[in-house]
């Protein structure tokens, strides 16, 4: 893959996160799985990037590595101007406190804390005071005003995920990583979450990376990166849902017989093979 062209004004200050020749290998011998095979990617600052690909293609792995949750087998990683390679647990913890926000697919909130306390948790852990103006803006953006003092088990799944979004936004991190944030929601709640994310990028210049396998969700992004079998196989700018679907179909056709551009088929696990079929698109 050639490195993407950085020509947008928002990205002028450099990439928010970077990976260069990133390899990730799980296990060894018989059970060895190569999840990422030399991925190089730069996520532009102030942009909304979606990562797509069939199940098992390495989306989550890529995101976890870039966010410093998982270590790379080989390759360079950076968030802003901080290189992740060689950072110990303390360094990674500081990085997460100061530069990274997370939104997970499910189980996002601490049951002992109210919605508001959950939102402010990263700041409390870092010992920072919230900017009241920004806090208000975030609350308004996610529309939680009257639910702030409820506990997670008193909130619907959609509301819980909005709290999680607010929590990621409130500390204004360098980049927010979201792993299938709408995967567990009905389409209406999902659409609401996606619009907050979109708005926070457009209006506040937040950088967001989102893993999804839903073409419609991907269409909210500025750029879609397609992963297959641990490699970036394509990308699309200013995507529409149709364009994304179209691209997925084409990729299936391309990758179907050989199992990927340069990966020998023998190295792939059986589990991976459905990725090369139509199920990848329907996922």
């Amino acid at each position: 893959m050639t490195s993407p062209v950085i020509d947008t004004p928002a990205a002028g200050a450099g990439a928010a996160a970077r990976a260069a020749d990133l390899w990730k290998v799980y296990g060894s011998g018989e059970a060895q799985v190569i999840a990422l095979r030399g991925v190089s990617v730069e996520l532009e600052r102030g942009r909304f990037t979606a990562i797509m690909g069939p199940s098992g293609s390495g989306k989550s792995t890529l995101m976890h590595c870039m966010a410093g949750l998982d270590s790379a087998t080989r390759g360079q990683l950076a968030i802003g101007d901080t290189a992740l390679n060689g950072l110990g647990d303390a360094g990674l913890t500081r990085l997460r406190r100061e530069k990274v926000g997370f939104i997970f697919q499910q189980f996002n909130l601490l049951p002992t804390l109210t919605a508001e306390e959950n939102i402010l948790l990263p700041l409390a852990i870092a010992g920072r005071k919230p900017d009241p103006q920004w806090f208000k803006t975030v609350i308004e953006t996610v529309g939680l005003g009257d639910r702030l003092h409820h506990r997670p088990n008193q909130l619907s799944g959609g509301q819980q995920q909005r709290v999680a979004c607010a929590r990621a936004l409130v500390s204004q991190p360098e980049v927010i990583f979201a792993d299938e944030p709408t995967g567990n929601l009905d389409s209406r709640s999902g659409a609401e979450i996606l619009s907050f994310l979109r708005r926070s990028v457009t209006e506040h210049g937040q950088t967001i990376v989102m893993v999804t396998h839903d073409a419609n969700a991907a269409s909210y992004a500025d750029r879609v990166i397609f992963l297959a079998d641990g490699q970036i196989v394509d990308e699309l700018r200013e995507p529409t849902a149709d364009a994304v679907l179209d691209r997925i179909k084409r990729l299936d056709v391309v990758s179907s017989p050989t199992g990927g551009p340069d990966g020998p088929p023998g190295q792939r696990t059986a589990e991976d093979s459905p990725a090369a079929t139509a199920t990848g698109a329907s996922e």
Binding site: L69, D89, A90, T93, R94, R96, R97, E98, G101, F102, F104, F107, N108, L109, L110, P111, L121, P122, I125, A126, R167
Partner: peptide, 16 residues
């Protein structure tokens, strides 16, 4: 376990 992972993900240190 998952709560612990979550607080670590949002920046709580080991000693914390």
């Amino acid at each position: 376990t998952r709560e612990l992972g979550l607080v670590r993900a949002v920046g709580l240190s080991r000693s914390g």
